[in-house]
Amino acid sequence: MSNKHLVSIGDFTKEEILKIMELASFFEQNKSERLLQGKVIASLFFEPSTRTRLSFETAINRLGGRVIGFSDSGNTSVSKGETLHDTIKMVSGYADMIVMRHPVEGAARYASEVSMVPVVNAGDGSNQHPSQTLLDLYSIIKTQGTLQDRHIMMVGDLKYGRTVHSLIHAMSHFGVKFTFVAPEELSLPDEYKMYLKENSVEFTETTDFMEQINECDIIYMTRVQRERFSDLMEYERVKNTYILRSQMLKDTKDNLKILHPLPRVNEIDKDVDDSPKAYYFEQAANGVYARMAIITYLLGVK
């Protein structure tokens, strides 16, 4: 079985990432290409995620494919104790591709070993969510004209944020420079810093949001969640430090765009929404094109 899967962003080479960018752009121009006519895609959401599921299912529908599956595992054979192995074996006999979200980390990798058809990971616990990373990349290339030599500032929870970790990996192909802005308790784990050093990627770490805000091309915001703190005093002390407000943008670069994987809570003030530099809602819309690209690429129909 030589099926191509997308479980981790590391499964795609630099060339494949660029191919996905090209396809996403094509689908943005051509929103209804019936390339999946006659195909059935399984959408297996073992835990609910309305946002991701609707994005994938919109992508499949726009491509003319049909969707089977479930939006959470209550009331299915899974809730009756069926193993992941058996669910995947069965469904891969019905469908041409499996898109799956699962709370257990590594579930999608395991499914890719069991499945007879390609598997797309739509999130496995705190581990990977590669389609989010590809839509982030598509948002960067669309707004910057290139992925090459960008200065990206990442703000907030850099310790647990899986979208942050995957984006670091993916952007390392492209001569990037990073500024990491986080409270000490949520700073980037050593593992990723080691990875950046090994790959000669330039980065700085700071707790000061304003330090490099006027030099960067992208601000990637994430949520600072109360439950991530072991010390609630520390949370109270920093919670307002990592909120982006419109007056902070006044001397930033013209090409600056603000990204956020959504949903946001209060880390981006509402007054930023009207700024031409706010891009998070368009970013979400880009998800459909990125997912159309991923599906057609893995099925070899485009």
Binding site: L84, H85, P103, V104, G106, R109, Y110
Partner: peptide, 12 residues
């Protein structure tokens, strides 16, 4: 060592 790993949740 990760209790949420599929190898600790299923027979893998």
């Amino acid at each position: 060592a990760n209790p949420m790993c599929v190898t600790n949740k299923e027979v893998v």
